[in-house]
């Protein structure tokens, strides 16, 4: 028997559901990251998971992003699309020591080029502490970012979750 593995994408996803027996559906904070990205502006970092200070952000990847940096490691998974990430080792850190979450860089980063990676669906990349990074998506896609709640994180729970 040939099995078919079902992944989701911006154009093709089927959201699940909660059947309540004796509970409040809000307790499950249930959303679908493709649905969230479909309704987001390009490069908005919308939280789809939160656990104390830690967050997971769904990002609509479209065109070229600005440059970001962070004072701790982060990762992204390409959930849909083809996405290139360019990295620069900053001469001077942009994110203050101890600062949580991604921060935006005004203009071009100053430092040595570290390299680039090209991701397709299911690929995961490290966004190393102290680097600057920038995304390019030729076709609209979706990223899932593992990070910490920061100034750029948008929380829209009542708009995105089952209730």
């Amino acid at each position: 028997m040939a099995y078919k593995t079902v992944f989701g994408s911006l154009d093709n996803f089927t959201k699940g559901r909660i059947d309540i027996i004796n509970d409040d559906p809000k307790h499950y904070v249930f959303s679908n990251l493709f649905e969230v990205a479909k309704k987001s502006k390009p490069w908005e970092k919308v939280a789809v998971g939160i656990n104390q200070e830690y967050v997971l952000e769904a990002i609509r990847a479209e065109g070229q992003s600005g440059w970001y940096s962070c004072d701790h490691d982060e990762t992204v998974i390409c959930m849909d699309g083809d996405i290139e990430i360019n990295f620069v080792k900053l001469d001077n850190p942009v994110a203050a020591p101890g600062k949580s979450g991604s921060v935006s860089i005004n203009g071009e980063p100053v430092g040595k080029k570290m390299g680039r990676v090209v991701l397709q669906q299911g690929h995961q990349a490290l966004l190393p502490k102290g680097s600057a990074y920038c995304f390019t998506a030729k076709k609209t896609g979706v990223l899932l970012q593992q990070t910490i709640l920061g100034d750029l994180t948008k929380q829209r729970w009542s708009q995105i979750c089952l209730s």
Binding site: R17, I21, L33, M79
Partner: peptide, 18 residues
């Protein structure tokens, strides 16, 4: 052990377990 909910998750779904 009293049942509270049944949660059906498909690709792209995100849910917390309290």
């Amino acid at each position: 052990g009293a049942p509270r909910a049944k949660v059906t998750m498909r690709a792209g779904d995100c849910a917390a377990m309290p």
